[in-house]
Amino acid sequence: MVKAVRGTLVKCDASIKAMLVDIDNRNNNDFIIEDLDEEHLLVKETKVATLKAQLNQMLKERLKDPEKEVSDAED
């Protein structure tokens, strides 16, 4: 029988997906419903905003913030 699962499809590249899965693992698998393929995840609709916020937090820690580059650009 055909099944329909309500949720939010998240499309991202593989590196971001790894981070999302990491966040999910650290939060008792509370976010992801199903791991679809390399670039797609099915996420609980109510949790998308929290997941995004956590991802941004993680990115900020690991990557250089573009805002800080303003002084570099003034060459």
């Binding site: 055909v2 099944k3 699962v5 949720g7 499809l9 998240v10 499309k11 991202c12 199903e34 995004k52």
Partner: peptide, 21 residues
């Protein structure tokens, strides 16, 4: 770079009994 994830709300359809369907 600014848009790492693209999201869309909806439904995942799965477990179709036959290829044709």
């Amino acid at each position: 770079e600014g848009e790492r994830v693209v999201t869309s709300n909806g439904y995942l359809m799965k477990e179709f009994p036959s290829e044709k369907e």
